[in-house]
């Protein structure tokens, strides 16, 4: 820092010498006395390894203010994993069903679901519909971003809340009416 300043002052003086503004160079010069010692490469590695432990580490997510930009993004992944995870589990169960004596053919499932009370049906439908509609609708945003569309902070916030609104609407419609 100090050496840079001295260099700049020198340049200024060279460009426009003015004796009225002349400052003694000693005023700006700092002297730092530092002792150096040479270490071998093994010791050097040890010092470096110790120094690297001092580097900052990302703090926990809870320090960030919840905003639609990043919460929607995490919810996108969570819903995706939930939907695909259910599909995988159903696939495994469907393959294992004959061996284990389960009945996972469509008619048996329909009969099983038909016997549930209405409240349970609604709860189950909402549990499936909410992640499905969120992930599907949010997918449009991600594909738009991949084309470079709607990438300003304002638009990202607007489309984020639009997706939340549409998710709630479609989930309610298909849970209660559809």
């Amino acid at each position: 820092m100090a050496s840079q300043r001295v260099f700049q002052l020198g340049l200024q003086r060279a460009a426009a010498p003015s004796f009225a503004k002349l400052q003694p160079a000693g005023r700006m010069v700092q002297r730092r006395l530092a002792a150096t010692q040479s270490v071998n490469s093994a010791e050097g590695h040890e010092i470096l390894a110790k120094q690297r432990l001092q580097r900052p580490v990302s703090p926990h997510l809870t320090i960030y203010k919840p905003q639609i930009t990043w919460t929607a993004s995490s919810f996108n992944r969570i819903t995706g994993v939930a939907l695909s995870g259910s599909l995988y589990l159903f696939g495994f169960a469907y393959l294992a069903a004959p061996t284990l004596g389960w009945h996972l053919e469509t008619p048996s499932l329909v009969a099983a679901v038909a016997s549930w009370p209405v409240a349970v049906k609604i709860a189950a439908k909402a549990t499936v519909a909410l992640p499905f509609f969120f992930h599907s609708l949010n997918g449009f945003r991600h594909l738009a971003w991949d084309l470079g569309i709607g990438f300003t902070n304002k638009v990202v916030i607007q489309t984020g809340w639009t997706v939340v609104g549409l998710t709630v609407a479609t989930t309610l419609y298909y849970t209660l009416l559809g």
């Binding site: 390894a49 580490v57 926990h60 997510l61």
Partner: peptide, 19 residues
């Protein structure tokens, strides 16, 4: 002001190759 919470504390550092 808050407690220091880290998702993953750093592992013991190893330097591969030169510094």
């Amino acid at each position: 002001a808050t407690q220091r919470q880290q998702i993953l504390p750093p592992l013991p550092q190893t330097i591969e190759g030169t510094a």
